[in-house]
């Protein structure tokens, strides 16, 4: 048994839920979390995104927008993200991970999230008290 921790964009929650049902892991627990990723050292990558976001800003609060974007780039502000905990059988892990990656990929190249796979020692279903794979 494995626990899959997937941290994805907030607006990809619906797509992720759908992908989970399609890949056979309907059950999950989700949390709202805040986070930041690896510091992006590639200035060109940041500049492209920054320009895109700045073009959306209204004329009078360009400065505030720029300050805000800079604080996110430097890591002073944290991005709101959705954290999914999914329990899966060993053989299903690859399928679920692929499904999550497929729906969460964007063409921004940064900030799409991370997926971690952790081992689980045991699990118990509260209703019946059964444990192990029977409780899945």
């Amino acid at each position: 048994m494995k626990e899959i921790i997937a941290i994805v964009r907030m607006n990809k929650t619906g797509a992720t839920k759908k992908a989970l049902i399609e890949s056979g892991a309907a059950g999950f627990t989700a949390n709202k979390v805040f986070g930041r990723g690896t510091l992006v050292k590639d200035d060109a990558k940041v500049a492209v995104r920054k320009q895109e976001l700045m073009s959306l800003a209204s004329e009078e609060d360009k400065e505030t927008t720029e300050l805000m974007i800079d604080s996110f780039v430097s890591g002073a502000s944290l991005f709101p993200m959705r954290l999914f905990n999914i329990i899966a059988l060993d053989e299903d892990v690859d399928k679920i991970v692929d499904a999550i990656i497929k729906v969460n990929k964007t063409n921004y190249n940064i900030g799409d999230g991370k997926i971690f796979v952790l081992p689980i020692a045991d699990l118990v279903r509260v209703r019946t008290g059964e444990s192990g794979e029977a409780a899945m």
């Binding site: 892990v93 991970v97 900030g111 799409d112 997926i115």
Partner: peptide, 13 residues
């Protein structure tokens, strides 16, 4: 501290 068996980056896969 818990072990992680695998990690993936979504943007690059």
């Amino acid at each position: 501290i818990t072990p992680i068996e695998e990690a993936y980056t979504v943007s690059t896969g």
